[in-house]
Nucleic acid binder design. Structure first.
Lengths: 213, 213
DNA sequence: TGTACATCAGTGAACGCGCGTTCACTGATGTAC
DNA sequence: TGTACATCAGTGAACGCGCGTTCACTGATGTAC
């Protein structure tokens, strides 16, 4: 038994932390849960398995999360923050408000979903959407798109017209994301041309602009 | 114990059938499972609960389905057949190939998802999509749309151009369906104007036609 | 029409499993003096 | 700097639960003669 306690020192399973007190178990659990959810989906996931993956006892997660749902909510929130970051880096190289920038956001959305299907599902269906910070994080993602549309139209991001332009765009990439996850995008579209389709539809829904050079 | 056996005769829980031999337990189980899935989702569903809802022992389903997955697949197939029927009746009143007819199909799609969210999720993500008859049923649904687009464009339903017109439309309503399920359609669009948005986007993706009168 | 029998479609009891969660506990850490 | 003690963040054993699935069984049905 004492052998088990020594093990983390001689050959740590998680190399960064080795103490009895973990240091940042909360985030480690979120990461472990995310990885499990990524390939098994929100329902294949269990608290016990996440704990195992993090190298702690099955009771340990309950020091940091009220229950299973709370852990899932934390993973969903974490996912939305990651998505917002993806938006940032995807659109950064392009002229704000341009077709290039806006399609890049759409492409990033679909790519995020494709790479992490389980997480994507969790973010949109997995948890009670009543959590305030979860909604807020979602709005921040959508706000990215609205920001570009505001620049493009010369209106405020909160303007009705901007939202009404943005919503169909979001709807479209949301559909593309789910079809892609479920293996129907390449099949039916007849090739790996998802990005081209996104760009084409985006252009048609936006209409022309000087910003597109 | 003998009281339990008599019960179905004196006060049948399922009024239509009362015999020891059920008559059509297979379909009854599919219906029961569908109802469970409709409000709990594919993962909240259990074979045992479906059996209970059908009024049979928990072992009975295994006379008709190899395992849990097979039952789910049957429910998914059943759902796709239902969706195809919805498409039929939604577009029937309108001129084939017209904007009216095509938006009606889109509206039926979103309505189907909204009314039966769990079933809709199951149909697209719940089962291994390797089943041939399941894919076929999906193609039949998509074929409905393609048929209208063929009429509209004067091309064969199998023509590349028709599929390339149809796919963005499907993608869009698919997104609208999921956003609606997850409670984000009315919220963000600013009202129950889903049908209007569908029609508007459909018109823009289709372009004009004489058929639209 | 009546009987013997094969087959079909149920029953109900049982199994092993992994899960979520709780509990009393204990080792590690931080702080007051 | 050293010591006493409160608090924090883990452990590991245990619980009750519902599930998927199997099994030997039995009542109902259909058919051959």
């Amino acid at each position: 038994l004492e052998n088990r306690k020594k093990k983390p020192d001689s050959a740590p399973p998680t190399p960064r932390k080795e103490a009895y007190h973990h240091g940042d178990l909360r985030q480690t659990l979120i990461d472990a849960a995310r990885r499990l959810i990524e390939d098994k989906g929100p329902d294949g996931f269990s608290v016990a398995e996440a704990a195992r993956a993090a190298g702690v006892s099955t009771a340990a997660p309950y020091r940091h999360f009220k229950d299973r749902t709370a852990l899932l909510a934390a993973v969903a929130l974490d996912g939305k923050l990651r998505l917002a970051k993806d938006f940032d880096s995807a659109s950064a190289p392009f002229v704000p408000g341009s077709l290039d920038a806006i399609s890049a956001i759409g492409g990033a959305y679909v790519l995020f979903a494709t790479r992490q299907p389980g997480l994507f599902r969790l973010m949109f269906a997995g948890v009670d959407s009543t959590s305030e910070e979860l909604i807020e994080a979602g709005e921040r993602c959508f706000g990215h798109l609205l920001g570009h549309l505001a620049v493009r139209t010369g209106q405020a991001p909160e303007a009705d017209m901007v939202r009404q332009l943005g919503f169909p765009l979001w709807t479209f990439v949301h559909g593309a994301a789910f079809l892609s996850i479920d293996g129907m995008l390449d099949v039916v579209a007849g090739g790996p041309q998802a990005d081209a389709m996104i760009r084409d539809v985006t252009a048609r829904l936006l209409g022309p602009s000087d910003l597109d050079g």
